[in-house]
Nucleic acid binder design. Structure first.
Lengths: 264, 264
DNA sequence: ACCTGAACACCGTTCAAGT
DNA sequence: ACCTGAACACCGTTCAAGT
């Protein structure tokens, strides 16, 4: 029974206290999130789960944000990348890929929120980026266009997931919706004629269709909009880029990378 | 000097303790945020500023989220709505309006973050929504298209602002960027050929131009993409909506409001 | 009826002191 | 050299008890 010699009956009925490693910490964090939600994945709670003090975690993880980023990357392993190498139109396959990404994040909106602030850089995230770029390239997007388009697409997916409220907050979310509905009902036709006219259309849910339409809009726009270089910052010229976007869009859509608008 | 009779020299050199009102609380919260950042606008810190205990605030404000929402709406009063009634192409004016929105949020990214979760419903927010809808209507967008487009545009602006790190976090943000750069440098051409090929293009900053291009993409897409009703959820058909978006786009752009896609 | 002191149940992060 | 107990400096929210 001395601290040095293990007692005869300690034939590891329970792993007792496995050595701390970064991988082990992250794995436990993922488990904890699955069981209790990201809001419970705190340094203190996690340390408790690992039978140690919170200070010990700081040997392996810089801070809470980094921990959450690691958890996120782990989760991104679940994204279905198969559309990249499947048959069919690149737009549809890209939409399927991104929908899978959003579905994974939907399970943990708080994680999506953190992804919006601290850009991830894990292995699984890179696989996702690679996949999106491959499909954009297949669609003929020139490098810069693809890089910027990637940002737009992932940001849209991430933000959409982030907007979804966690179960815990759903009571508040419902209050939000009620408040907005009340405001819309009371909207004055004088001050807010457009809002009054649209009415309930403004909060028409149909989340799935909305998400799909958003991807369509982005894909059309990414292929169609004028070349990044020629787009002036808003607030400059009054007629710059006016109809050029969709005007030349039809042509450019056929061969986006051969567009001539690099020269204004 | 008795508690009841005011002492002669108390000719309100300091307002002592103004009665609590919701408006007063929110005004103080805005001041506090301007002075110390949103992260300091906590119930406890705010109560201290108002010379009372945190419990007192709960008489006027449901919780911290609602407080932050009220602060946000106050801030949105600074958005420049003049592009709605100015001359020029509706796209450029809409871009200017949204750029102003983003500029206001850029000052307080944490507030943008909260806007992403709890959708605002204050007066100033409604004014902004009304303005965006008016410009979309001017561009000939049909009601449903306008409603969905509104969401896309505001979400893009909000998310872009939310991504910007607060001063306090800028050290972390820089580390993020360094980490990402390191990852890109080490990216293997085998596993991530697209990423390796694009290289530094992926993190090319030029925030202003990127934002402007994003608005262009969205506006092109909103006008151009197939009708919301006809957009199938991703993962369904393989050829649905393939080229229809930009294909019919050129026509639709000339007279978007006379488009016949209400009837499939 | 209206307001609030004090308590409950938590946080992240650091650092001096241990092994 | 590596690890961590204990402390510092905070949080949001509730509710019983006061005026």
């Amino acid at each position: 029974m001395t601290p040095h010699s293990p007692s005869p009956r300690s034939r590891r009925e329970r792993p007792a206290k496995p050595a701390l490693t970064r991988a082990g910490i992250v794995a436990t964090a993922v488990e904890l999130m699955r069981a209790e939600g990201l809001e419970r994945v705190t340094m203190r709670r996690l340390a408790q789960e690992l039978d140690t003090g919170p200070a010990s975690l700081y040997v392996y993880v810089r801070n809470t944000a980094e921990l959450h980023a690691a958890v996120l990357d782990e989760l991104l392993g679940e994204v279905d990348l198969s559309p990249v190498r499947s048959a069919g139109d690149w737009r549809d396959r890209l939409a399927r890929l991104l929908t899978s990404y959003v579905e994974v994040l939907f399970e943990h909106p708080a994680l999506a929120r953190s992804a919006l602030v601290a850009r991830p850089s894990g292995e699984h995230y890179l696989d996702l980026v690679e996949a999106v770029l491959a499909l954009l390239a297949e669609g003929g997007a020139a490098p810069e266009r693809a890089a910027w388009g990637l940002d737009l697409l992932l940001q849209y997916g991430t933000a959409t997931a982030a907007e979804h409220s966690t179960r815990a907050e759903s009571a508040d979310a419902q209050r939000d919706r009620e408040a907005l509905t009340a405001v819309l009902d009371n909207s004055s036709p004088d001050r807010h004629p457009q809002i009054t006219a649209l009415g309930p259309d403004l909060i028409a849910g149909a989340g799935e269709a909305r998400l799909a339409w958003g991807f369509q809009v982005l894909l059309s726009g990414i292929v169609t909009a004028p070349d990044p270089d020629t787009t002036p910052a808003a607030g400059t010229g009054a007629d710059a880029g006016t109809g050029a976007g969709a005007g030349a869009g039809a042509d450019k859509n056929s061969a986006p990378d051969t567009a001539t608008d690099t020269t204004p």
